[in-house]
Amino acid sequence: MTIRVVVADDQELVRSGFAMILDAQPDVEVVAEAGDGAAAVDAVRRLAPDVALLDIRMPLMDGIEACRAITSSGPTRTVMLTTFDSDAYVYDALHAGASGFLLKDVRRDDLVHAVRVVADGESLVAPTVARRLIAEFTSRPVAAPPSDRLDVLTARERETLLHLARGLSNAEIAAALTVSEHTVKTHVGNVLSKLGLRDRIQAVICAYETGLIAPSGGG
């Protein structure tokens, strides 16, 4: 299956560079390029790609607004790009529905991997960006006790959500719970479905916001 991608960045050289890298892959096709957020949203609505690669800072409509418009109106998943690992918009972009977040100095192979992972329904955040997200949480007041929103989860599903919030992979969660990776995938799927979440990134945000895990890392 070919992964169809829209690439949006207001810097032409950056945009064409990313498009060239992705188009060179046998399983990826760049169906459109856009120089601003509004053009990106229009391209996504016309072409319905699998993934939109969005610069977070663009004219007319920034990447966050474009991301929100794209994820709220269709199945296209988004990967955000930024020059700065300390970008204050990380949290807002993830809340807008971004499924991936990368720095613009990402290596060629990592860019391609991110597009494939996100197209496959998973999420991916560069390690330095993940640290920024954690810092955002730790700067907030200590969370309240878990909210009623989590009552729909079984005890094992709550454990799974807790491990997700701590950044564990499926394999690591399987080891912690002494179950198979297949069982973990089932638990993760149930967590996302019951809580109405798009992906693992939103699950992490939910775990903090509902008080399942405290900003300091306790649970």
Rank of each mutant, 00 (worst) to 15 (best):
A48H: 12
L133P: 05
I70N: 05
H163Q: 11
C67Y: 01
V117T: 15
D92E: 12
L13Y: 08
L195H: 09
G217S: 08
S73Y: 03
D148H: 10
P146A: 13
H187S: 14
V31A: 08
G100P: 03
L111G: 09
E136T: 14
K104E: 08
L162T: 15
C206H: 06
A119G: 07
E29R: 15
D55E: 09
P75Y: 00
V6D: 00
E181W: 02
I56N: 02
H182S: 12
A39Q: 05
P26Q: 06
P59G: 04
T183M: 11
D110G: 04
A38W: 00
I205K: 10
E136K: 04
S169P: 15
A48S: 12
T2F: 05
R15N: 01
D10Q: 07
N170C: 08
N190H: 13
T71I: 02
V117H: 15
N190K: 12
E12L: 15
D109G: 13
P49N: 00
E122M: 06
S123H: 09
P75R: 00
A130C: 08
R68A: 12
R149S: 14
R4C: 00
L177P: 01
R149K: 11
A52N: 05
L197W: 10
L94Q: 10
G37T: 12
C67F: 02
R158S: 02
Y91Q: 07
V44W: 02
R68L: 08
A165R: 13
A93K: 10
T128H: 06
D92F: 02
Q11S: 11
T83E: 08
L103G: 04
H95G: 02
V31L: 11
G218D: 10
T160P: 07
P49Q: 09
L161H: 15
T76I: 09
V125A: 01
A52W: 03
A175G: 08
D85V: 13
R57E: 04
H163E: 06
G74Y: 13
A34W: 06
